[in-house]
Design a protein around this nucleic acid. Structure first.
Lengths: 201, 201
DNA sequence: TATTTTACCTAACACTGTTAACTTAGGTTA
DNA sequence: TAACCTAAGTTAACAGTGTTAGGTAAAATA
């Protein structure tokens, strides 16, 4: 009875074809350009065929999210096993993480639902400059009050902002993750570390 | 000639009405539910009237982004002027930032294009657990190798992940912002601060 | 009063995700 | 072989989206 086996094999092949062609579209035109009709066109089948392999569009995106994390995990593992010192492991894994995010932008975007539209908002909204100026001012004052006088205030500002935004957005995406108390502790932990880096070198 | 003045005043009133009603929709149903037709319905005008006040939907979203930053800036300024010590200013501004993000979730989401769909992805994708486990392992090893033995490894992991994600996503949203070199420095700065917090208390 | 401007609406275009209903080809059974 | 059934694949629709062309009617100007 090789017939049913052939059929399930062909079904699987079509499933991977859908994902491959979808990925081609995303690479060429970005996530917002991905539509079921375009996928159907690319695989040379009608639209409902796509739905016979994936419940809905969300399921396709979810599949890419998973693929993304699998690839990221591979890179992290490689970084981790390349050295023995745990501090160095942390450092190399951080670099691997960043590396993955920028080499596989499309993956990282879908993994974290990152701003698909208007990607250069930060450069267009002048109100952001006001915020930056405020932060830079207090950071500058902190540096002159501490012993780390020659640190770059712009660098420190961006570090600070990144930390803040990271904490907020990770907590926002995974709402039910932890208690509100834990979330506040994470902020305090990160901020106290940052403030120390302002105070002393 | 009060006629043209009345007309421009009415135009402005309609503009703010559009924004108000749009905001009502967002608060009630979220960003993905906001459509021009719904806005037109709410203001009791036809669709093209909306377009006579805003070039396109993107322009409406941009207006909310600006509003968001203006409100955030107000809170930051308040935190900043409430104390004199610059280190304490940094700390209070961080808290004000987080506070704004969670009290005004809708604003923060549009300001940073934050994952509008599938908000609890983090909880559904099991691959994320694998990543967490790796990070937690090296963090645990780091803590036992250092002098900060009673630190919470879960807390430290979330702090670390938040820092990483913040750096990546801030840099991704504002692509043309800085040189690649500066971006790498930001990562190194933040990570070295974090590693120190693992090594010593 | 005639003309122009402005305000506004209807209706369309080109898309999107999703699904009901139909056809047709393949394999199974009598 | 003929009749049947199942599953693959189709067309065409529904309901929604952003956006805009073209027409109408009222109001302001000449």
């Amino acid at each position: 009875m090789g017939i049913t086996e052939r059929r399930t094999r062909q079904k699987e092949e079509l499933r991977t074809l859908i994902l491959e062609e979808a990925w081609e579209i995303v690479k060429a035109e970005g996530w917002q350009a991905l539509s079921i009709r375009k996928i159907a066109d690319a695989i040379e089948y009608s639209v409902p065929v796509v739905y016979s392999h994936f419940e809905n569009k969300e399921a396709i995106l979810m599949e890419f999210t998973r693929q993304g994390f699998r690839q990221l995990n591979k890179k992290l593992k490689k970084a981790m096993t390349s050295v023995k010192d745990p501090f160095q492991q942390v450092e190399l894994m951080a670099k691997a993480y960043r590396d993955f995010a920028f080499r596989q932008k499309e993956y990282y975007q879908i993994m974290f639902g990152l701003g698909i539209p208007a990607c250069d908002k930060v450069n267009e909204v002048e109100e952001i400059k006001i915020m930056s100026d405020m932060f830079i001012e207090v950071i500058e004052n902190s540096l002159t009050n501490g012993t780390n006088k020659k640190a770059d205030k712009f660098l420190k500002f961006h570090t600070f902002w990144s930390i803040l935004h990271g904490i907020v957005s990770i907590q926002m995406v995974g709402t039910s993750g932890h208690s509100n108390d834990m979330n506040k502790q994470i902020l305090e932990d990160a901020v106290s570390g940052f403030i120390r880096s302002l105070r002393e070198k």
